[in-house]
Amino acid sequence: TWSWLKMSFTGALEVLIEMKNQDVKFTKDTYVLAFAICYKLNSPESFKICTTLREEALLKGEILSRRASCFAVALALNQNELAKAVSIFSQIMNPESIACTNLNVIIHIQSNALENLIETLTNAAEGNLSKFVKRHMFSEEVLAKVREKVKDVPALVAKFDEIYGKLHVSGQVTNYSLDAVLCYTPRDKKSHTLLLNKRMVSRRTFRPLNQSLLAE
């Protein structure tokens, strides 16, 4: 249930704050975790904590990952802090991820920049058709928000319906919600490979297993 999850998130955030108070250095992953927890709590207080942590990190010259920034943007949008969301988003170095794509749509919706939004969606649907070019993916949930926003503007809703169809045909629509996209953790192939490589070494002789077996 949410009450249990909220208690868990709150407890985890308290631990992270205590770490910060003890001057424990945060890694990039620690910031991702902290911002994700703040995003999940989605309260004025968690927004304030997220903002403070982010500003302190930037003052120290630390580089925040795109993923951490996405959680900060999403939280700002959920708290109706549009200017803050736009500011954070503008500082993301490479906003080409599926999370960034959909957050950008939400920013346009909240900014009432509907014509620019339709243009952005059009470019995504009618852009380079090469299979070698990574295409933007849109959440069905986010596109539903677009349609709700443009439904009272006949010219825009007709254009949106046309674009929506093209996006579906080209496989650029996912059923994952924005929350699921933000929280998705890809499997780390590199760490998996390293683990396999480590297991190929004999613990007793510290030689490759094939050499150890031959020696025995």
Rank of each mutant, 00 (worst) to 15 (best):
K166H: 09
N104Q: 13
L167C: 10
L114E: 00
C100K: 01
N128T: 06
A74I: 07
L82N: 10
E148V: 09
K60G: 07
P95L: 03
S130C: 09
L114A: 00
K84V: 15
E126T: 07
D161V: 07
A155Y: 07
S139R: 02
A74R: 05
L82K: 12
K84N: 13
A180P: 04
A74C: 09
D152S: 00
E96M: 08
F160T: 07
F132C: 06
A124S: 13
N123D: 15
L178A: 06
L58M: 12
A125G: 03
A125L: 01
I109S: 15
F132M: 08
L114V: 05
A158K: 15
K149E: 12
V86G: 00
A72D: 11
L117M: 12
N128H: 05
R147H: 13
N94Q: 13
V153S: 04
L59S: 12
L121G: 01
F160L: 05
T174H: 04
E115H: 02
G61S: 06
L59Y: 08
S90N: 15
Q79G: 09
S111G: 00
F138N: 06
A85G: 13
K60I: 04
F138S: 09
S65C: 10
S90I: 05
S170A: 08
S97F: 01
G61R: 08
G61P: 14
V150G: 01
L77N: 08
K166T: 04
S69E: 01
S170K: 11
F71R: 00
K159P: 00
N94D: 15
A72I: 02
N104C: 14
L103M: 13
I118A: 07
E56P: 00
